[in-house]
Structure formats: C-alpha cells, structure tokens
C-alpha cells in the first residue's frame, strides 16, 4: 500500500530526518511505500492533523504545543524547566517516561490517533539583539512568541514583552526592529537564518522542543499484526536514529552559526544565572493547571516523577 506521512518541517530538518528514516525502514522491510509531505505542502500543522484524523494521511508529525487546541494537556511541554537540561537524562526520560509512554497515548486515542512516539528536537534558545544574563535584560524587549497562552505567560514571567507575530513576518520584523527577540531550537535558528538578523543567542535550558508522531487510529487498528509490528519497529529504529542524530546537533548548529557570522555571541547561561529564570516556572505551572484542570495536573505530576527517575537512572 501507499502510506502518506506529513510533518511540520523541511525534509532536511529533524522531523524530516525522522520521517526519512521511518520511510527507509518500512520500505526495506515490506512492500509498502511511504510518501513524505514536508511543511506546507498539504497545509498548516492543524490541517495535516485534521487530515490524519480523517484518515487521508496515515501518519502525521505534530508538536504537542500545536496540538494544544485539540489536547490541552499536551501544552505541558511549554512549561519551562520541566524537561531535563542534560542530554543523557533527557534521552533516558523520553525512553522511560510513564507520562509519555502510557498517559499521552490515551489522550491521543480519544482524538482518533495512535501515538507512536515523542522525541526531542533540540534545546530552545533565545536569539536577541543584546546579551541576556538575567530577566532584567529582557525588560522592554519585544519578544516574538507563538500565540500560545503558556508561552506568553512564560515570557511575561521572564520579564520580556511577549509579542505575537505570524511566522512569515518574524525575519523582517527582527530586521526592522519591530521585535528584538524570538526563540527556537538550535537547528531551526540555523535553517531559518534567524542569526542573520539578531546578534546574540542565549541558552537558558528552559525547554527542549518536543514533537510527536502518530498514526490514524482506525487505520492502525485495522492493520494485520505484522504491519503493526513493522510500524513499531520502524518507529523504534527512527527514534534511536534521531536520538543519535540529536547528540551534538545543537553544538553543531551553533558552531555553523558562528562560522557563518563570526561576530555572533553565543551565551550558555551558568547554573547561577539560570536560577531567576527557573524560579518563574511555578507561575507557569499554575497557569497550566488553571487551563487543564485535574487531568493536566496528573500529567504534570507524573512528568516530574518521571524526570526524577530519569535523573537517578543516569546519575547512578
């Protein structure tokens, strides 16, 4: 059969790499063909999600943050400092988390989707015009965020002036000075050329951009067991591949940026400098619970527990 798979990034970006590996695995081990549809070719993120729910697409990659309109609990990934800042712990977390591997699949199933996996895409860093070492440095900085209430809350708590702006206008707005900052994972700062129009990159470890791959549930449940196993093992292979690919990707992207623009300042904030930013997390957690109620709280608590276990497993 021909299976169709849409994702939110370009073919050579992280989601595209994952999809290519998935396609390669499926096609090597079966007669099925996988067609890949990168960002924008079948509509925006919300469109491809609906198409997957309608069964037109068999597979779709959508980041939980964008799923928030459908599954509010998925916005937990916007709560700052919830995910491990250290790479080894992060990978352990994604492999073992009960919240991710058991609780989220149920929420996605309610929307007719089989959650295949979630994986990290890289640490989100800020790119600004002036160096940022503390929340005070973000004062009066108009900072572009996606129109998500939790992101707005976060950047308000960080001291910035969150400013919504359509993605297509961000580059120009940084160039002319309507806004003075935006955030994205390292590879995206590189591929979208945000470094061309900003002077400083600051990593404060507040978030790692997470994405999720899912299948249409009716399609998945209707498959013979061998095909389900095929999809599972292709997903596992692509997951391992993407974690390997991830290792060092952030440094590589930042290095490429430094080469393309030698005067670029890249600041990785120290533990001590991060402290005031980390203190704001409580406020955003409360906003998250206000929005999502009991179910959201249960996910948040479980994720904290999973995090605890992951850091014990990697430190011990």
């Amino acid at each position: 059969d021909t299976w169709r798979y849409a994702f939110e990034e370009a073919l050579e970006e992280v989601q595209g790499k994952f999809a290519q590996k998935f396609k390669e695995e499926i096609e090597a081990n079966s007669d099925h063909e996988v067609q890949l549809f990168p960002f924008g070719t079948l509509g925006e993120s919300a469109d491809t999600m609906e198409q997957a729910q309608a069964g037109i697409l068999q597979f779709v990659d959508q980041s939980p943050g964008f799923t928030g309109a459908l599954i509010p609990e998925a916005q937990v990934f916007f709560v700052p400092y919830l995910l491990p800042q250290d790479e080894e712990t992060l990978q352990e977390f994604f492999r073992t988390s009960t919240a991710i591997n058991e609780m989220f699949p149920e929420l996605y199933a309610e929307q007719g989707l089989e959650l295949l996996t979630m994986f990290p895409e890289g640490e989100v860093c800020m790119s600004t015009q002036e160096p940022v070492h503390s929340p005070a440095d973000l004062n009066e900085v108009k900072f572009r965020v996606m129109t998500n209430p939790l992101l707005v809350e976060s950047y308000q708590a960080f001291g910035a002036t969150p400013t919504p702006l359509p993605w297509g206008e961000v580059y120009g707005a940084l160039q002319t000075g309507i806004i003075q900052g935006q955030e994205n994972p390292g590879f995206f700062l590189e591929s979208t050329k945000m470094y061309e129009v900003t002077d400083v990159i600051t990593c404060i470890g507040h978030n790692n951009f997470t994405t999720a791959v899912m299948a249409n549930k009716q399609f998945y449940d209707g498959l013979p067991e061998e095909d389900q196993l095929l999809i599972q093992s292709a997903t596992d292979a692509a997951f391992d591949y993407i974690l390997d690919y991830q290792a060092g990707l952030q440094e590589e992207s930042l290095q490429n940026i430094r080469e393309a623009k030698p005067e670029m300042q890249v600041n990785i904030l120290s533990e001590e400098e991060r402290k005031p930013f980390m203190d704001t997390a409580v406020q955003v957690e409360e906003a998250f619970i206000d929005m999502t109620g009991e179910r959201g709280k249960a996910i948040l608590d479980q994720m904290k527990e999973d995090l605890e276990q992951a850091s014990q497993a990697t430190s011990g």
Binding site: A46, A69, T147
Partner: peptide, 12 residues
C-alpha cells in the same frame, strides 16, 4: 460538524 465534534479551540 466534524470540527465541532473535535472541540478544537482558538488558542488566544
């Protein structure tokens, strides 16, 4: 009708 069934909300 489908859209209403999914309960999607505008984020802001």
């Amino acid at each position: 009708k489908t859209s209403a069934g999914q309960g999607r909300l505008l984020p802001s």
